[in-house]
């Protein structure tokens, strides 16, 4: 019977879908697949639930587990968020983070498009070696660079300014974006470029009119990924910024909202929640781009 299906309709020979799953019973599937998956999802999501529930919990419920169930909230309050937005520098930190992330992402994308195109398509002498060096640059972690960078930033005179972050974030963004875009450019057929060359287009025209429109998905992937990486950056911002009005969200929340021994958990968790929202919203719109850029960075 299966032979008949194959010969009559070759498209039906599909390699993914159910595979051998059809042989396992429901009980087995529940034990092997659904139960572990449920545990995984619960563990991976619980901290976010805990963050969110704490952010809207009135203070007296936070430390009273006897009368109020810690897992739920009665009379949710916006007091913590209000406190955060109107009595701390939090809005300023949000603005700084946004500004720094957008600027460094933009700079990195611009530099990376040119670099990736040159390495992948102009094929200058040593292009392969340059590509390998870019990959190695991606592997250099910020935790071994922050001390000399602090030294440089201080000597250049941009210590404690947003410019210091805008200029240093591309060190980890450019290698990543270039590497990702190289992969995208590689998938664009040579013939398109050749025919444009024959028609008399310059390299610049080929790049802007042929390659870039085709590489838009790659640009989006690289862009949102770079934005997320800069939004999450911590060690440079912690080292290079000292005044409150220039801090980014992660640094501000940690250094200014944690005071002494009395932790204002409500305000802290609201700060964490609000600070995560922009990237989470961006993520929810571009899930597939994220996945492709993450796996694209790992694949050769």
């Amino acid at each position: 019977m299966s032979r008949q299906t194959i010969s009559s309709d070759p498209i039906a020979v599909n390699d993914d879908v159910t595979g051998l799953d059809q042989f396992s019973t429901l009980t087995r599937r529940i034990l092997v697949v659904y139960l572990p998956l449920a545990v995984f999802v619960f563990v991976l999501l619980f901290p976010f639930y805990w963050m969110a529930i704490t952010a809207v919990k009135p203070d007296h419920q936070l430390s009273n587990y006897k009368e109020y169930s810690p897992f739920w909230v009665v009379e949710p309050t916006l007091a913590h968020i209000k406190y955060l937005l109107f009595e701390t520098s939090y809005p300023g930190w949000l603005w700084n983070t946004m500004l720094v992330s957008v600027a460094s992402t933009f700079i990195s994308l611009l530099a990376s498009v040119f670099a990736a195109y040159a390495i992948e398509r102009v094929r200058f002498t040593g292009a392969r070696v340059t590509g390998l060096l870019i990959f190695l640059a991606y592997l250099v972690p910020p935790s071994i660079l922050f001390i000399p960078l602090a030294f440089i930033v201080f000597n250049v005179g941009i210590f404690d300014s947003r410019l210091a972050l805008i200029l240093t974030y591309p060190t980890f963004l450019i290698p990543f974006c270039t590497w990702l875009l190289m992969g995208y450019f590689r998938t664009i057929p040579f013939e398109l470029e050749e025919s444009a060359l024959v028609d008399g287009a310059t390299r610049w025209q080929i790049l802007t009119k042929v390659i870039l429109p085709l590489a838009v998905p790659g640009l989006i992937s690289a862009g949102i990924f770079a934005f997320t990486l800069s939004w999450n950056e911590f060690i440079y911002a912690l080292t290079f910024i000292s005044s409150s009005e220039n801090k980014t969200v992660p640094v501000g929340v940690l250094t200014e909202l944690v005071r002494g021994d009395i932790y204002e958990w409500g305000a802290l968790m609201s700060g964490a929640l609000l600070g995560s929202l922009p990237v989470v919203i961006l993520y929810s719109f571009f899930v597939d781009y994220y996945v492709s850029s993450m796996t694209g960075a790992v694949k050769e």
């Binding site: 901290p47 976010f48 805990w50 963050m51 939004w231 999450n232 911590f234 969200v249 992660p250 640094v251 929340v253 940690l254 802290l268 968790m269 700060g271 964490a272 929640l273 600070g275 995560s276 990237v279 989470v280």
Partner: peptide, 9 residues
Amino acid sequence: VPTVLSALA
């Protein structure tokens, strides 16, 4: 989600 913020949780 930013590591610092989830670490706070």
